[in-house]
Design a protein around this nucleic acid. Structure first.
Lengths: 145, 145
DNA sequence: TATTGTTATACTCTATAACTATA
DNA sequence: TATAGTTATAGAGTATAACAATA
C-alpha cells in the first residue's frame, strides 16, 4: 500500500479513467433498467436534495440551458418532476422532484451492484482514505465548485 | 486521513459521482478544444495503444457496434484514424490511429489541466494509495474486465 | 440592458433491426 | 448457422442563435 509502483501521473489518470468508466457504466445500466437515460437520472439525483431552477440545473449538469428544457420535459411527462413558478422571480421555474421521482432514483441507486460490490472490498479506513483523496484531488478546484 | 467521517457508502458514491463529473468535464472540454466529441477522443485514446477491430472498439466503449461506424467515419474523414482490412479474417476491419491522431490525443491529454492540478495536490504516497484503492474497488470485477 | 426559459436548427450519440460479406 | 461491419431509422443529448417575458 505504500509502494511507489503505479503512481505516476499518466498511470493514475488511466486508472481514474477506467474506474470512472466502470462507475458510469454501472450508473447508466441502472438508469436504463428504469427506462431513464444517464442525463435524466443525473437530473433526478440532483433534485433529490431539493428544487432547482432550470438555469441552476444546467450549470450543475454542465450543459446548455436549452438542453434542460428537453430533459425536464421528458421527466415531467413521466411524472417524475414538476415545474413550479418561482414566487420571487416570474422568469424562473423551479423544478421539483415528485414522490415517484424519489422512488425511481432510489431504486437506481440501489441497483448499482458493481460499484457497491467494489466499495465493499474496502474496509472502513480504506473508504475514508479514498473519500479524502478524491475530495482533495477533485473537490477543491479554485473556481469550478 | 484515518478518521471515519465521510466514509459511508452513500457519501462515497456521491464523491465518486462528483469526481467523475469533474474528470469527465475536463476531458470533454479538452476534446472540444480540438473539435472532437468525448466519444471520438475516447476512441483515439483506446487506439493510442494499438489497432483494434470495430467490434472490439464497441465493446471497450460499451456501445453498440453500429455506433462505431459513425464515430470511426468522422475520425477517418479528419485523417485521425484509418480502416485496414484484417489479413486473417476478411470480415474484420482493424482501425489504426494515424500520426496526426496520435498528436491530437496527446494534445488533449496535455490540456486536462484541472485533473492534473488535482492530482498534483497529492504526494507520491497518496497517489500510490489512490491508485491501489481504485484498482481494488473497480478493476477486479469478476467478468467486466 | 441583462437574464430566464423556450424554440428552432443541426450534429452527434445511442440502440434496434435488417442487410452483406464473409466464416 | 454464426459473426463482422454497415445501413436505415428513431429517440435522446448537445451547442448555437433567436425569441418572449421579466427583471
Amino acid at each position: 500500500m505504500t509502494g511507489t509502483r503505479g503512481a505516476d501521473t499518466a498511470q493514475l489518470m488511466e486508472m481514474l479513467s477506467a474506474s470512472l468508466a466502470a462507475y458510469y457504466g454501472d450508473f447508466t445500466a441502472a438508469a436504463a433498467s428504469e427506462n431513464l437515460t444517464a442525463s435524466q437520472a443525473k437530473t433526478l439525483n440532483v433534485l433529490r436534495r431539493g428544487p432547482a431552477a432550470m438555469r441552476v440545473l444546467a450549470a450543475i449538469l454542465t450543459c446548455d440551458a436549452s438542453n434542460m428544457t428537453g430533459i425536464v420535459d421528458r421527466l415531467e411527462k413521466r411524472g417524475l418532476v414538476q415545474r413550479e413558478p418561482s414566487p420571487t422571480d416570474r422568469r424562473v421555474k423551479n423544478v421539483v422532484i415528485t414522490t415517484e421521482g424519489e422512488r425511481v432514483i432510489d431504486v437506481i441507486r440501489g441497483k448499482m451492484h458493481t460499484t457497491r460490490a467494489g466499495l465493499d472490498r474496502l474496509d472502513d479506513e480504506e473508504r475514508s482514505t479514498l473519500y479524502a483523496l478524491l475530495e482533495r484531488a477533485f473537490m477543491q478546484q479554485p473556481a469550478t465548485a
